[in-house]
Design a protein around this nucleic acid. Structure first.
Length: 226
DNA sequence: GCGACAG
DNA sequence: ATCTTGTCGC
């Protein structure tokens, strides 16, 4: 499959693929989780995507991969997938094994057309995915408690699209929404299960470091790159 | 027409 | 996203 270069084609593709999203949980709990994220190099001309695989429930990193792909789409709010997904997919393919779950740095269902980056990656790769964004794209919500674990529904046009989740006491919350093959209810629980002492869950926190050019130590150093 | 707007 | 160190506070 190739990726659209124009906004109108991208919008049409989201409308077509949104029908493929399935929001039901897998029968088995995930035993591995991959965090993915994209960074930029070459003055923004190239996406450097990272995928870090962790074992559950201990969250130990077991593998990592990096991929470089030329940028082919401008940054347009709600069309982030077309900028980062190609590179993220390449990184996931080089991981050596398919993760049981993928956590993305961006929205899933909490998107104008209900098809954020996490949904796109999930449908494309046919993998369970969750979106965990640092800021809001759409939706409203009630104030939430100040303690770790506090959570409130993210609503939009009368329907719940995700959760606003406080992963650390006294720190800005994250915006969690299911991407594919994960239920709204379990999405927040899985993100909490992947979070330790930082605001972001370990999978995306580590993927962000790798995508930003930093180093992450993986015990059995089986990393790949391209 | 005026804001809002994942990374 | 990205340019960037130390510092204040729980």
């Amino acid at each position: 499959m190739d990726w659209p270069t124009r906004v109108d084609a991208a919008l049409a593709l989201q409308q077509a693929l949104r029908t493929q999203v399935h929001l039901c949980d897998e029968p088995e709990l995930p035993r591995t989780v991959a965090g993915v994220d994209g960074g930029f190099v070459d003055n923004g001309a190239t996406v450097r995507a990272a995928a870090v695989l962790l074992r559950l429930p201990d969250l130990q990193p077991v593998a990592q991969a990096v991929a470089y792909v030329p940028v082919r789409f401008p940054y347009v709010p709600s069309l982030l997938s077309f900028r980062e997904a190609p590179a993220i997919i390449a990184a996931l393919e080089q991981l050596g094994q398919r993760p049981d779950l993928v956590i993305c740095d961006g929205q899933g269902l909490a998107h104008p057309r209900r098809f954020g980056l996490a949904c796109h990656l999930g449908v494309y790769c046919d993998l369970p995915t969750i979106g965990c964004a640092k800021t809001r794209l759409i939706g409203q919500h009630e104030p939430l408690g100040n303690e770790r674990g506090a959570c409130t529904a993210l609503m939009h046009e009368g329907e719940q699209l995700g959760w606003v989740l406080r992963t650390r006491s006294g720190v800005k919350p994250v915006y969690v929404s299911p991407g594919h093959r994960v239920s709204l209810a379990r999405a927040a629980n899985l993100v909490m299960a992947c979070t330790t002492r930082y605001r972001l869950p370990e999978p995306t926190r580590l993927a962000h470091q790798v995508a930003s050019g930093k180093t992450v130590s993986v015990p059995s150093d089986k990393q790949n790159s391209q």
